[in-house]
Design a protein around this nucleic acid. Structure first.
Lengths: 189, 189
DNA sequence: AGGGTAACTTGTCGACGACAAGATTGCCTC
DNA sequence: GAGGCAATCTTGTCGTCGACAAGTTACCCT
């Protein structure tokens, strides 16, 4: 059913998205080409347009998928704020292609219906982690400010890590390094 | 001398870089086209190649210029860590085109000679701010970890701000919002 | 004055994105 | 089980772009 033989591919949409992830992980979003994706999937050069409309349609789908995956990853990380922060970084490193597209709204249609919903879902998962913080640290006066600071520090660390801008001494374990960085923002007794 | 008349443009290199900044600020780096820049400057479609070799050459020059500007901005901000952090965010917002290219190494030649030097200069300006912190807070045990956390939080805030991902309630003054966020990482007595 | 060289032009090629129009297949209904 | 219908994919084409090659112009220096 998912075989590639025959006139109908069977699962071309998913195949194209997976190929896009491969290309972006190898060479970045700038190197993405619909014709190349079609070649990798073994279909004609115009086949992708049927599923995504145009290039930004494909990237919209990729970003939407990314926000859903991020929301799930944050959910699975449990209620602890530190763990959620590490999960955020872990998602960025483990789904680098999705992450690189998600925060580049000039590449896709940021007002697309499914995307808006997925982004809101991820945003809520992000905020509920900070709500847990307010419970365990009653001294916190401004949970929204805490949320912004937490989001900034994990997002910045992830972005710097992915761009290769960090000095080598940071090491090669993003989870451990992220944990230390987040710990500085919310020190535990 | 800098007039556009005659066969020789006079200052084409700078004109092209300025036009690239305009395009990127309007539509992002993905929309950049050498032929469009040439049209804006009133020269032939192949003129840019003479100055920059190819597209990544132009973006290498833009990133190099960006790192120099960032180093100067950090220097001018003075010795206080908080002020330097605000200056970092202010640079990102005020030179959004440069900033967006600088941390996207897949767009340019990250091993180019001038670029490596400029990036190191900016890195030193970033670190010397944290050295000042160690002086005023002798309790700090790990200045390199502090530097990484500080860089992460300002870089993350700037990136989120530029991507438009922040909720509207953060307001429209990036300097003030950045100051609050950084203050959470390094609270003053 | 004149030659050398940097700066710019014209011309061309292959690749890409987008669009149009046609071919094929699975499915649904009667 | 036969016909029709819609979704899926193909072929063909156009304008634009990046890159390269080869030629042209103007500045500069002695």
């Amino acid at each position: 059913m998912t075989g590639t033989r025959g006139y109908h591919h069977g699962d071309l949409r998913r195949t194209l998205l997976a190929a896009a992830v491969d290309v972006i992980e190898e060479s970045g979003p700038a190197a993405l080409s619909l014709r190349d994706l079609a070649r990798r999937a073994g279909v004609s050069h115009a086949a992708p347009a049927h599923h995504f409309g145009d290039k930004s349609g494909l990237l919209t789908a990729l970003a939407t998928e990314g926000f859903h995956l991020l929301a799930e990853a944050l959910h699975d990380a449990g209620g602890d704020l530190l763990d959620r922060g590490v999960a955020y970084v872990d998602f960025a490193v483990g789904h680098r292609a999705h992450f690189e597209v998600m925060f580049r709204p000039d590449l896709y249609r940021s007002d697309a219906e499914g995307l808006v919903a997925a982004r809101r879902r991820a945003g809520e998962a992000l905020h509920s982690g900070v709500a847990a913080l307010s419970r365990e640290r009653p001294t916190a006066k401004d949970p929204q400010g805490d949320a912004l600071a937490a989001w900034s520090i994990v997002h910045g660390f992830a972005t710097l890590w992915l761009s290769g801008a960090l000095p080598p001494r940071v090491g090669d374990d993003p989870r451990a390094a992220a944990r230390e960085v987040i710990h500085r923002l919310f020190p535990k007794p």
